[in-house]
Amino acid sequence: MSTDYQRSRVLLGARLRELRTEAGLTVREFAAGCGWAPSKVSKLENGKQTATSTDLDMWAVRVGHPEYAVELRGRLAGLESTYRSWRRQLAGGHRAVQDALGAQHERTTTFRGFSAAVVPGVFQTPEYARSVLSRYAELHGVTRDVEAGVASRMRRQEGLYRSGRRYRVLVAEAALHTRICSRAVLADQLDRLMSVNGLTTVELGIIPLTAEVRIATGDDFWIHDDRLVIAETWHTEMWLDSADDVALYGKVWAGLANGSVTGRAAHGVIARARAAIGF
């Protein structure tokens, strides 16, 4: 069993435990209501056993929220997939998607990321994150659970203030101007981006529109240490862990970084975008 699969199973179990405790049920009470042995409940909650769709449907009914079955089945469907359909993932809600990313975040010391059209999630304000998640939810016809997704995304930002972490992030200048939110929200977001540019854990590179680049910008991606790449397309999120794939994305990142500006120069590009908003 892969480590990623097991970690995802543990996350599913933690969600099951959360729902049971919120319903005010002990393990024995819950098991009795389902006709299960208490040991089965414990194994599912601790990630020692993989739930079936029937188990998850029963769980949702037992905690008094049958509608949660969709979320739980979505989490189950995403356990092993390398190519993870956004529609299928979001069927489980935004929180499930963000929690899975958060689990990888906790395992990673050095991040190399690239974002072409929006400010990366790890730097987003809550209002900006809400706008981004809402727009993509509308695209895929799944608009529930946005607030839970925003909260989970905000928790990941705690890593910015932990010693030993390193965020090497590239952002295309176009992302500083993308009006995926209101002007006021974008202004606050750019203020936030300028502030994180000064953190000791962050190396922020901005790729100016006029930069000479070794490779054209493409889809957003994150390299987690040298073990995993998470890349996004319109319809799919790809989790790639082969040595060849990780090496390829490392070359792409280095090529993009060659055309970026950092430090005061990056701050200047962000400040000009901020001034253009007019607030």
Results as ranks from 00 to 15, higher is better:
A116N: 00
A116G: 08
A117P: 02
V118C: 10
V118Q: 11
P120Q: 02
P120D: 07
P120G: 01
V122I: 15
V122G: 08
V122Q: 03
F123E: 01
Q124K: 01
T125D: 14
P126H: 14
E127R: 12
A129P: 04
R130E: 08
R130K: 08
R130D: 13
S131H: 14
L133A: 09
L133P: 03
S134D: 13
S134P: 00
R135E: 15
A137Y: 10
A137F: 03
A137R: 08
E138P: 00
E138F: 11
L139P: 00
H140I: 09
G141C: 07
V142D: 07
T143P: 04
T143Y: 06
R144P: 07
D145K: 05
D145S: 05
D145C: 09
D145P: 01
D145A: 00
V146T: 08
E147F: 02
E147K: 04
E147S: 13
E147G: 06
A148R: 09
G149P: 12
A151N: 04
S152T: 12
S152V: 03
R153I: 03
R155N: 15
R156Q: 15
Q157P: 03
Q157N: 09
Q157Y: 06
E158S: 14
E158G: 00
E158M: 03
G159C: 01
Y161W: 07
R162M: 06
R162G: 05
R162Y: 10
R162N: 11
S163T: 15
S163Q: 14
G164M: 03
G164W: 05
R165A: 12
R165T: 13
R166P: 05
V169K: 04
V169S: 09
V169N: 01
L170Q: 04
L170K: 11
V171M: 08
V171L: 06
A172R: 05
A172I: 01
A175W: 02
L176C: 10
L176H: 12
L176T: 13
H177M: 07
H177F: 04
H177K: 04
T178Y: 14
T178I: 02
R179K: 12
R179C: 01
I180T: 13
I180K: 00
I180V: 15
C181R: 14
S182Q: 11
S182K: 06
R183D: 14
R183P: 00
A184T: 13
V185P: 01
A187W: 09
A187R: 13
A187V: 12
A187G: 02
D188F: 10
Q189V: 15
Q189M: 04
D191G: 15
D191W: 05
R192W: 07
L193Y: 02
L193H: 06
M194R: 13
S195M: 15
V196L: 13
N197H: 04
N197I: 08
